[in-house]
Design a protein around this nucleic acid. Structure first.
Lengths: 229, 229, 229, 229
DNA sequence: AATGAATGAGTTTTCATTCAT
DNA sequence: TATGAATGAAAACTCATTCAT
């Protein structure tokens, strides 16, 4: 768990030029993307300022338009990169190599940890929902990333049902949503919850505790046979 | 379950005047509040337009300033009203009159249903988190509303532990967060989830199913004794 | 010939407020319109600067948007007012009270003089043609103004044919276009013609001469029977 | 009448390279000029976009600056080429070989036809007038092209007066302007006229008719002796 | 001869807010 | 209590032009 959230690179390197002064288009693009992610996750699409992004990135504002056309598309590109990252890491979990229960623990733990360490992704998603997922739906890339999402989880589930580790049958999508709920909510709503309970609900201790509870909860659920209706 | 979400009153009554032509300050205030809620929940604080709110409310823009001083305070007032409503209904549940398990089912069901029927509240909270709960923290009223939040849930929990219905001890706040997670996430992230899974995750059927799963999950969890660490 | 071209009011009154300091929305609107006409006719729609219009009008720039929504619509409003003026004056000519030949002379003379004194109208029309008459076609008002345009000219023509003053039958629209050509071109192309001929083609003497020639030309044409094809 | 208007080459050849892959500076220059003419005549100097010109020409934007320094000079070059063409064709008419009346018919017909087939030239001139003929006056080449313009027409006029074909003495420049008026106006103002009269004033039939009328008008005028003042 | 990257100045437009009645 | 007029600051975006290769 050594990932770093690109969400808030407070100290932008002075210039996108290479030490030798040469231009570096690839780096420029990436710096813009990083700065945009920080700005968007902190202020939302509407609240983000293109000016601020340019400053954070240390590039001329117009360069943003040169590469990304407009704010909307930049937002889409940021989302795309963020999704690509989580899905890539998820694919690397190699759940099939673990026992169903361990695989499930690992999947839940990964999701929890990823969100904790990528708080900006949480903020991005919230905002994307405000905009009715407009950018996601416009991005074939993002949609393609998720075609296999249910698959891995589904396989683990089936293996568990087969070997008796699990006793309840759930649709993979539903299971995914339940898991994501438990990982996501206390981060997405960290500020309101903390205000209301007058305590920091994202302190390391609380997070550790909640990570355990989420895992437990899902496993309890899967282990218990569905009660007869 | 007959509550109506004030979130989107698309057709504003023609005028805040009463039939007899007299002015009606209370109604004006409320119309502004309703319009603001619709606008804020649809566009966020940053994306909402004071102009649009005035139009929705069918009042002059300046009247908004007359009553609410500025956009921020208007947002705060909207939040306040929304919180007041959910907490008031929650208090009316009379959990103590039910068996611990039934009380727990009722509490979860209520939360689930309330959010389903008040999608605008979900949107409002998301946005408030983007702003680091600034308005909530500034509102003594909202904070006061929550002083007893853990209490009722805690009592139910203790009753269940006492009579053997529950076997696991959780801090009421943590339990509340777990429950809220399961109720809230698929609504707050309905658009992104629906896009990604290429299906409507908030169809009535899916919602009913998820309501059941959330309840089951929490009860399984509470019934199962904590495994020895 | 005492009309004044509103095209270039170089010295804008300092403020749209009345001497007593009161606001004066009607005057504000008109000042914006006048300033816009000057700016548009001098620079074209694309070259005109909203800023410059605001300064000329002595009003806040935003007021322009308050009244006219955007630059395009402002341009349309300017066109509309200009067309309304020429057509109103034209209607006031009372051609039916004159002999056909005098009526024709008067019509031609009026058109010539109007354009000379409203050079900004000529510039406006040129620009509108660059934009494929987009604004005219969008304006029902302008279109309505012209429904009777051919009528008056047609009547004069017929009267002349009836009493033998004229010997050639032309469609009123065609006649109108021929007349307008002779009045319009040396004004619309004054700069290029003057450059090419290294002389001022719009000197008062030249204009007077051309006015006479245009009249003569049309009358010669109308008096001469159409040669057998 | 087989000339083609370079005004709107919508499909730019794929590349300025020759089939053998070699660079082709002369072609690049010409492609830029053609693209510029299309863009300028469609949008005006102010509305034209250097970017768009580059795209139309299929060359890199910077190449435009390499060859033409800036937008203004490019516009001047376009004008220059356009003027060169019309004057060259005009010189080739060989009016002196015809009877005065035929020569006059030919001159008028040529002007009419040239403008019909070079609508972009008309648009260019309109725009140049918006800019007070700045570019023409700056171009010695263009000015030189016109030194003899009045000459040919003047000779035809004199021949006609001498042999009695014409009865009216006009300054060649004035005659030129009258002729040009009749040829130019319904093209320069085609859109506004068509809008106002709710008909296409540049349909082939209308054009043919107007061509005849213009010729007739000028000849009537020249044949009729000036009335005593 | 030709190109992709980068920029600075400016443009329209938006928007919360205040003025004056 | 309610409104139409007016404003200043800032926003996104545009565009001709230059840099560096």
């Amino acid at each position: 768990m050594d990932m770093k959230d690109r969400g808030d690179p407070s100290a932008p390197p002075a210039s996108p030029r290479r030490p030798d002064g040469a231009r570096n288009p690839e780096e420029s693009r990436q710096r813009i993307l990083d700065a945009a992610r920080a700005e968007f996750s902190g202020k939302g699409l509407g609240g983000a300022r293109v000016n601020a992004i340019a400053e954070r990135a240390g590039v001329n504002k117009q360069l943003i338009y040169y590469y990304y056309d407009d704010k909307e598309r930049l937002f889409g590109a940021v989302l795309e990169e963020a999704y690509r990252e989580i899905r890539a890491r998820e694919s690397a979990l190699d759940l099939d190599a673990l026992s169903p229960e361990d695989a499930m623990r690992r999947f839940i733990g990964f999701n929890f940890d990823f969100l904790v360490e990528n708080r900006s992704f949480v903020a991005l998603l919230n905002d994307e929902n405000l905009h009715k997922a407009r950018h996601i739906r416009a991005s074939e890339q993002i949609l393609a990333l998720h075609e296999t999402l249910g698959r891995t989880l589904g396989r683990t589930l089936e293996r568990g049902l087969a070997d008796g580790a699990f006793a309840r049958s759930v649709a993979p999508m539903d299971l995914y949503i339940l898991i994501a709920s438990l990982c996501y909510f206390s981060l997405s709503n960290a500020y309101t919850l903390s205000a209301i309970f007058a305590t920091d609900v994202t302190s390391p201790e609380k997070l550790a505790e909640r990570r355990g509870q989420a895992t437990e909860m899902v496993l309890c659920f899967l282990r218990t046979p569905e009660p007869p209706a």
